[in-house]
């Protein structure tokens, strides 16, 4: 018996976690998968009818779904691009010498770790058109009052992106800052001797040497950003008039407000496949980066 345990250490060590994952994840996913081929509306008296790929067909022709996919892409890409640029800039900034580094670092952490639902509520209050501080500021600066999250155009989406940027830029900054600290001093010294400009040092030395940590930061953000949920749920719940409806919110509505469980299951299956594909891409890139590093 003991020999068996010794020989199969790998299995013994991994098994508890694996069983947990299978029970808690694979089983629900299988449940969703099987329902995605039915027309079930959560009824207790009408058994689900098998309708083949009907739900998938419907979704792919559903303008609201396609729009939500598009919005998810726009939201994710703008947020990631801005967070990366700002994050790198801030990392370079706090890499300079200044007083209070520890305190500043700790305080910058707060948006990342603070409870998202609570933060969503705070932003909702600040951006509330009639009672929020934002419009007081806007008026004091001499502009017309704005509606912020209350617009059907791109503005409401833009504000959600800004909230996301506020929340996550510090994390990108800290990750890149960590990378910057591993860069040795020698290349900078030789650049100084060669008379390189600041910009040249930044693009030729800092960026390439910090590139792996930047890349990882981007990829980590990518897997989180496409399933952003708490903030949108707390502020707009996808409104006004679908202007901020992402895939996650649309799937949620189908399940909880429209009682279209089959359709919602199909949406979550599609969403899962996309995320899965991105995850594999992520690991592929990560393994490449680590080899170079």
């Amino acid at each position: 018996m003991r020999r068996w345990f010794d020989r199969h250490m790998k299995l013994v060590m991994v098994l508890p976690a694996l069983i947990f994952i299978v029970l808690m994840i694979i089983a629900p996913l299988a449940y969703n998968f099987s329902y995605s081929f039915t027309d079930w509306q959560m009824s207790l008296v009408k058994a689900p009818k098998f309708i083949g790929l009907q739900n998938y067909k419907e979704i792919l022709h559903d303008e609201r779904f396609l729009n939500s996919v598009w919005r998810t892409i726009v939201f994710s890409s703008i947020a990631i691009v801005v967070e990366t640029i700002l994050g790198v800039a801030l990392a370079v900034l706090i890499n300079r010498k200044f007083h209070g580094r520890r305190v500043v670092q700790a305080l910058m952490l707060l948006p990342v770790v603070a409870t998202p639902v609570a933060m969503g509520m705070v932003w909702k209050l600040m951006l509330e058109p009639s009672i929020g501080i934002a419009n007081v500021v806007v008026e004091a600066l001499g502009f017309q009052r704005r509606a912020f999250l209350a617009t059907t155009g791109f503005e409401s989406m833009l504000w959600l992106i800004i909230i996301d940027i506020w929340e996550w830029t510090p994390m990108v900054m800290l990750m890149v800052y960590g990378g910057l600290q591993t860069i040795p001093l020698e290349p900078y010294e030789s650049a100084l001797i060669d008379g390189a400009t600041k910009w040249q040092t930044f693009t030729k030395i800092t960026l390439p040497l910090a590139s792996s940590s930047i890349l990882i930061a981007v990829l980590m953000r990518l897997i989180d950003v496409i399933k952003t949920y708490d903030i949108i749920y707390a502020t707009t719940q996808g409104g006004p008039s679908f202007a901020t409806e992402t895939i996650n919110i649309y799937g949620y509505l189908n399940m909880f407000a429209y009682y279209r469980f089959g359709k919602a299951a199909a949406i979550s299956v599609l969403f899962f496949i996309v995320v899965m594909a991105m995850g594999c891409g992520f690991l592929w890139v990560k393994s490449k980066v680590e080899v170079e590093y």
């Binding site: 790998k10 060590m13 969403f271 690991l283």
Partner: peptide, 29 residues
């Protein structure tokens, strides 16, 4: 133990599963 086994036995594939767990959209559950 799971992390240890993955690290010691270089089980790259298993670490994929762990990451996927983090990525699955919660509403499915």
């Amino acid at each position: 133990p799971c992390a240890y086994a993955i690290a010691r036995f270089k089980m790259r594939k298993s670490s994929v599963i762990v990451l996927l767990v983090r990525m699955i959209p919660g509403i499915s559950f």
